[in-house]
Design a protein around this nucleic acid. Sequence first.
DNA 1: TTAGGTGCAAACAATTTGCCGTGTT
DNA 2: AACACGGCAAATTGTTTGCACCTAA
Lengths: 128, 128
Amino acid sequence: MTGKRYSRQRELIYQKLVETDEHPTAEMLYQWLKPENPNLSLGTVYRNLNLLAEEGVIVRMPFPVERYDARTHPHPHFRCKACGRVYDMEDLPYDSGLDQAAEQCSGHQVDRHDLVFFGTCSACTQKH
Amino acid sequence: MTGKRYSRQRELIYQKLVETDEHPTAEMLYQWLKPENPNLSLGTVYRNLNLLAEEGVIVRMPFPVERYDARTHPHPHFRCKACGRVYDMEDLPYDSGLDQAAEQCSGHQVDRHDLVFFGTCSACTQKH
DNA sequence: TTAGGTGCAAACAATTTGCCGTGTT
DNA sequence: AACACGGCAAATTGTTTGCACCTAA
């Protein structure tokens, strides 16, 4: 009996996100939309971004909380979507060819990259 | 005339970070160290993590603030360390072979990966 | 009519900062 | 003795939530 309804605000937020390539934060979207929609509220922006992300029509970019690592040489990580743990993947080599390729096709000066895998870790998989 | 001094707390924080592979948050480090250092404060943990990260002996894992993208197919991004802008790198192909390789050598179930390049964007480079 | 959506403000969470006393040099 | 550092609590910033009203279906 539950269903999603049309909402002008959700439409607005989604459209702005489609139009732009700036990967905005919730706050940025709010500022952009506010002038033409003076009674739009920031809470609504957050709520709808969460809805849209659940629905899968937009994606959230990681991470919510800062993490730290004493291994300063760049290496890939794995993040479990079930337990949130972060694992090293040091056996997977850092491919500096990627940085060069990225520099080529973007024109930006590339220092390094981060590679983060997402999925379910073996510990969580075993727990069913 | 300014210089860095020895600090027991910084030492503690750094050592814990070296010992572990859990990529802890500031809060986790605080909880771990608190029992043996009852008057350690969370602010100190944050301050020293920032110092250590500036110094380059530890690394911070991105991002501080959530960003959103309406292009839901996985694709690489570039983040400028000067202006903070995030660019798409859609010309660089998504290498799903990486996911398989990661699954092989880790034993975890891998859904996808995120690839984020860091450096200085062409706009910022031009501004000197 | 009714479940879902909105606005607003209050709550919550993560991180930073000011003040002032302590410890390193 | 000077000045960086730590403790603590207050301030800031990012995000979520409760509640009363509104709106699509």
